[in-house]
Amino acid sequence: MSRRLLWALPPVALLALFFLYPLALVVQQSFQPDGGGTSLRPYADVFASEAFRNALWTTVWLALASTAGCLVLGFLLSLVIAFVPFPGAKAVARFIDVYLSFPSFLITLALLFIYGTTGIIGSFQFLTTPWGVLLAEVTYFTPFVMRPLLAAFSQLDTAQLEAAGSLGARAPRIIRRIILPESLPALAAGGSLVLVLCLNEFGIVLFTGAKGVTTLPMLVYSKAILESDYPGACVVAVVNVLISVSLYGLYRVVSRRAGA
């Protein structure tokens, strides 16, 4: 046993040095205001600022709304790919895998052409509102819901559907009574992953260039890089990490139950 633990030590040590230790420093610095000493001042300052409260609210509702959008859209699209297959459905499924390997900001870049000031639809100031970010996030993160769903659908026993069909059940009823319950674990797992990723999303928001939309990651960036307010940035970072990590813990529990 001890030899096995010894083998596990080097990677854990690396992780501790390059990830956990820096993270601990962030927490430490969040308690050290620029004036020196250790206090809760940075927290008080940040929590008191309207910018932070706005960012927190924007982040949370954007993430929740995007997740809801991704779940609905992902469920519908996966349903068609899996159960009403058309020529090329497989290619579409593979396209989704490829899609996942592209960075998120490409979506915003594309939306800049479609909705931006010089764009196809014209000088419609849509992108600089939270709705533009919402659209981009739904577009980018829907495949993250579709992948576990398609996997779950492919394991669904078609005999069950045929049996239900032969008993006279129509499509909406089959979806509601058989497919939906069977895919709930995958939906829960995909949904909570997307929720975390949306909470942490940076590229999409950065590329919209919208001054009106500030999320927590954006705030971390602007406080640290643009304002050089490290204690403040660290406070926001700690809040963001707490929300995301606790949600991610939930995701792990859910997906372990789902066997995904």
Binding site: P11, V12, L15, F18, F19, L20, P22, L23, L25, V26, Q29, V196, L199, N200, F202, L216, P217, V220, Y221, A224, Y230, A233, C234, A237, N240, V241, S244, V245, L247, Y248, G249, R252
Partner: peptide, 19 residues
């Protein structure tokens, strides 16, 4: 431990490495 970096926002990973 090893999935934690997925949950932590990349911006924060950047900040912590910077610090």
């Amino acid at each position: 431990l090893f999935v934690l970096p997925v949950a932590v926002p990349s911006v924060v990973v950047g900040l912590s490495v910077l610090v």
